[in-house]
Design a protein around this nucleic acid. Structure first.
Lengths: 363, 363
DNA sequence: CCCACTATTGACACCGGTATCATTAAGGGT
DNA sequence: ACCCTTAATGATACCGGTGTCAATAGTGGG
């Protein structure tokens, strides 16, 4: 198939240099400029841009050379218009924790870096009346290439249905599998809170309390199940009376934390379903003149920065948020490819980080 | 100028309803659909979309009615292509504090909500070799409508120059004015740290220490000047030996905090140039078995969440980050308008929030 | 009643890409 | 030498909007 082509004799480098000299910095080169410089039609240049097969090797190399020399970059807007799809990835979230969002966002950007995709952030209120309409409008109008969903919007079946209907690729990040494998990143919260339970059991604790998160979040239930499972493996259990309802905010941790001291029997260890609430519990103990872990051990979940800012520093379950974001971004890009057997992992494993907020129970 | 037009007799409502019935949910209506339904050219519809004058009132109302009924929304991509400008606003930042970024982002989204603009986030490393090239590429390729710059990238003159060269609207958020009025949001850090100094002076403190931020940030110097000015107004001063160099991270606060106890004379009050470092100082004191504010008072700057998570809670200077973001987004949109005398404020004023980390000096 | 003038509108090209389908040329088989 | 197949490429329409400029139709003045 070695077909000697006259094309290879053309000096693309000089051609490009000449162009640069003439048009230096005047305007961005377009596909037409590249095409006429290369002496081909714009369609052929388009084929090269899109790595389409059936372009002669010499032609392809020459065009690539010119593209490089004149610094041509296809206009995403024009491409998107013809493609009927933009090169934007949306992050739709309703999680109120800033730390979570920044980590997630950063991870997604890691995964998107150098691919030509840009990230558009879109917070929303899942309870709002216009939630679904707004989301649909956003996705449809921007013709998003793909969407990444974090809890708890990731748990919304109606939204997923809309995305499917619009033919928009999406990745749902959630504590358990809710969709087909390629569309999920599973964070396995149950494993994480089981580790928390094991840690406390191994320290010798026997009386536990739990501060739960917002009921509408899947993680709230997963974390509780995991914790209870973990205790059960040590023959221990969590008294229903010792489960206090929080809502993942610091303030709720503060309030429930104060109530902990009134429980009978007094728990020696508390598992708060996230760090914010755990920080609230610790502050409540401080305010009451008590110290963790002397009076009771406290474990959180997330391992966000707050865990190391407070004193005692928080023993907590680390979930690799940034890695999750990166994974999500990478997997999103595999949707275009037919051969997605090469897909990376779609699970992450949380693990316990021991700090000073846990210790042996008081005698 | 009341010119009775036959147009007003046309029943646009039924026309639109008929269309809906026929095409229900099949595809998004385009400008061509609207034009043919209204019996006008697409150019006239375009005029209506863009609030262009010289469209007959009846025609305009009829077209608007149809647009509403069929749920037409102009495609931002197509519009952008013709307009040679997208409807995307970029947020370029290198500030490593997640809390700052989320607040800022949220504020910008507040200001952008309902305007049809979307936010594209773009972190970067100002020290990186490719910083300027990357930024230019991003702005040029996406044909950004406007850009919002936060410290310290907002302080980069080269970047501002590129933006001007590309004809891209931008707003710089910084502690002092660095550009024309319409392009700045000034946060007046000097005022904030002056308030911190006054607070400590009024409590009776006389020996101070300062943990400074990263030298490359303008705020680092502004906050120090403000603090010193504030002290001077009370006839007090900050010994150069008591200025410790930090870098705005918690870890640096932790390290410098430990060194505070070795200073001679021992300071009775410390001003850390941000909350993260202040939290580090407080933790260092805790670790050393000392308590704030008994041994020394600590003041921070920013009033991020960490300030209330730690114990004692941090007295700090509140800067309205979210409002700043909103302001920036709003002002950015005034760039298109010729009459920008209506521009909102371009300054914000920080203020002190007293909590438990400050008190009277020890005897 | 004619004319310059203004308000309103549309035809057509264009923004910078991609899709479809036709066309051309080279290679293989007989 | 002839026909068929495949590789390579281009002509043209099209994506959904906007800009330019010409065309049309009332309006007020002389």
């Amino acid at each position: 198939m070695v077909r000697k082509s006259k094309k290879s004799d053309i000096d693309y480098v000089s051609i490009a240099q000449a162009w640069n000299a003439t048009h230096a910095g005047q305007r961005k080169p377009t596909i037409n400029d590249v095409a006429s410089l290369a002496g081909v039609s714009k369609k052929t240049v388009s084929r090269v841009i899109n790595d389409s097969p059936s372009v002669n090797e010499d032609t392809r190399n020459g065009i690539k050379e010119i593209i490089r020399r004149v610094g041509y970059r296809p206009d995403p807007q024009a491409r998107g218009l013809a493609f009927k799809r933009s090169f934007l990835v949306g992050l739709i979230y309703d999680n109120p924790n800033p730390q979570y969002i920044v980590n997630m966002q950063q991870g997604i950007l890691d995964g998107l870096h150098g691919t030509g995709f840009e990230l558009v952030v879109h917070p929303c209120e899942r309870n709002g009346e216009t939630f679904l309409d707004d989301a649909r409008q956003f996705i449809e109008l921007q013709k998003l290439y793909g969407v990444i969903l974090t809890p708890s919007v990731s748990e919304d079946e109606n939204l997923a249905e809309i995305l499917r209907e619009l033919g928009c690729a999406y990745i749902r990040i959630a504590s358990i599998a809710l969709d087909t494998e390629r569309r999920m990143i599973v964070t396995n919260d149950r494993i994480g809170s089981k580790a928390a339970a094991h840690h406390l059991a191994e320290l010798g604790h026997t009386r536990f309390a739990l501060i739960s998160g917002r009921r509408s979040f899947r993680s709230t239930h997963e974390r509780r199940y995991g914790f209870e499972e973990g205790l059960a493996e040590f023959g221990l259990e969590l008294a229903p009376s010792h489960v206090l309802q929080g809502d993942y905010t610091f303030e709720s941790g503060l309030m429930r934390g104060a109530e902990l001291l009134d429980l009978d029997p007094l728990p020696t260890a508390v598992f708060a379903e996230n760090d914010e609430m755990a920080a609230g519990v610790l502050q409540a103990l401080q305010v009451a003149g008590q110290n963790a872990p002397q009076i009771m051990s406290v474990v959180g979940y997330d391992d966000f920065e707050v865990a190391t800012r407070i004193w005692p520093r928080l023993t907590t379950v680390h979930s690799p948020t940034r890695e999750i974001g990166k994974l999500a971004a990478q997997r999103l890009q595999e949707f275009g490819v037919e051969d997605n057997t090469s897909a990376g992992p779609n699970q992450t494993t949380p693990y316990l980080v021991e700090r000073e907020s846990t210790g042996r129970p008081p005698d």
